[in-house]
């Protein structure tokens, strides 16, 4: 990946920020917090939210396929599903992150190499090198910076989805088993096929059972987002380290000491607020979903009303 593009520090929002050395106190701070680099820092919060917005449904889809596979009547599909859900046990997830981001990249380049350069005779792995032909490189050597960044982000999303898909598969597998068996039998008694009972009876009913596990997973996913930094994406951790470090007057208009502790303190508060907000929203969702259900929660609600 290429180094990040230089961000111009000359662009300022307020007129008074033209000469920062003349400023002090609050006006200095307000100018400092609106420099181009700080704008990139604020944007990286958007990157985190975007990652969450894309990863959550993708991981759910992966998880659904994994859980459905683990229940399948076809043995090889069942083995794949079971292996996928079991593979996350016992191994640190950060190892998965570091592994997948390189492994996926090499897998894509390998496949493209096979397709685009079929008459290439040299071995791809030569000692410590991984060599594919120019046309198979991802992204292509001459593509602009934003494609490099998007490709990096795409790899990160895919890695997150694979790891969290395995977690979600476990939750959904449990939820599918929690649906009362009598429901499925009734479906079969009405002459539905295996596929029909799965889609018409099992899937609509499993969500209530899956929600506690999935909301737990959502909290975990939020807390996993700083790992984006390890995958080479310029996320909030990257910018907090970058902006917080000691700045000397030669390189910036806003010299300051080592402020990284304040930046990371801010990130800490951001995550605490985000988890608290999610907790409140998920609590409400659960209250609505349990309303009128024949579960302990639903019963407690009914008694509370009476």
């Amino acid at each position: 990946m290429l180094p990040p593009p230089p961000y111009s520090t000359g662009i300022t929002i307020f007129e008074i920020c033209a000469d920062p050395s003349q400023l002090n106190g609050f006006s200095w701070l307000s100018c400092y917090l609106t420099t181009g680099k700080h704008m990139a820092f604020y944007q990286s919060f958007g990157t985190v939210l975007l990652l969450l917005a894309i990863t959550a449904p993708t991981a759910l889809a992966f998880g659904f396929m994994g859980a459905a596979g683990a229940r399948s009547r076809i043995a090889p599909l069942r083995w794949i599903g079971k292996t996928y859900t079991a593979v996350v046990r016992g191994v640190p997830d950060i190892a998965f992150f570091l592994f997948f981001v390189i492994a996926l990249d090499q897998a894509f380049e390998y496949v493209r190499h096979r397709i685009k350069c079929p008459d290439w005779t040299d071995a791809i792995r030569q000692g410590s090198d991984f060599i594919v032909c120019q046309a198979a490189k991802l992204p292509l050597g001459n593509s602009p910076q934003w494609i490099h960044e998007t490709y990096g982000f795409f790899l990160a999303v895919l890695t997150f989805a694979i790891v969290f898909g395995a977690f979600a598969a476990n939750v959904l597998f449990g939820a599918m088993r929690a649906v009362p068996h009598g429901q499925m039998e009734t479906g079969e008694a009405y002459g539905m096929s295996h596929r029909q009972t799965f889609w018409r009876i099992l899937v609509p009913q499993m969500w209530v059972y899956a929600l506690p596990g999935l909301s737990n997973l959502w909290m975990v996913l939020i807390k996993a987002t700083p790992l984006l930094f390890l995958l080479g994406v310029e996320d909030i951790v990257y910018w907090a380290r970058e902006l917080g470090g000691t700045k000397t007057p030669q390189f910036t208009d806003y010299p300051h000491g080592d402020w990284r502790i304040w930046y990371f303190g801010a990130l800490l508060v951001f995550y605490l607020l985000f988890t608290k907000l999610s907790e409140v929203v998920l609590e409400r969702l659960m209250t609505r979903l349990t309303h009128g259900q024949a579960t302990t929660g639903g019963e407690a609600q009914r008694k509370g009303l009476a």
Partner: peptide
Amino acid sequence: GSPLFIQFFF
């Protein structure tokens, strides 16, 4: 409520 990763950095 906060990521361990951020706790380490902080």
